[in-house]
Amino acid sequence: MTMTILRIIIDLLIAVGVIFALAGTIGVMKMPDTFCRMQASTCITTLGVLGVGLGALLYTIFVMGSAATAVKVCVICGLVLVTNPVGAHAIAKGAYQAGIRPRKKMEIEDYRRDFNE
């Protein structure tokens, strides 16, 4: 009985992760400009990865019973969470400096005022 409840919880966590990954993917396809697409992709790397990772963590601890694998799942989640923002800073800044501007007119343009024109 507890096993069934546990499997349901694991499946729910993985389903939540997949739903957020789907939302992020739709956003990457349909958002109007580069920066908004990056915003949508953050959905995949945070709750998408965390949901699936948490489900996998519970699975490795209670179903597989292997602590070493559980630690490795934790390390995977941690590394994704630590490296993702670094890449996001670099890509956003690089896109801006390469001359990519939002297609819609930006509402507030502090960055352009201080750095370019």
Partner: peptide, 21 residues
């Protein structure tokens, strides 16, 4: 996450992007 996912599922039209300081 819920906020951005909502915007994505409702067609990505109600975004209002800007760079603030």
């Amino acid at each position: 996450n819920v906020d951005v996912a909502k915007r994505c599922f409702t067609g990505c039209k109600n975004v209002n992007p800007g760079i603030v300081k």
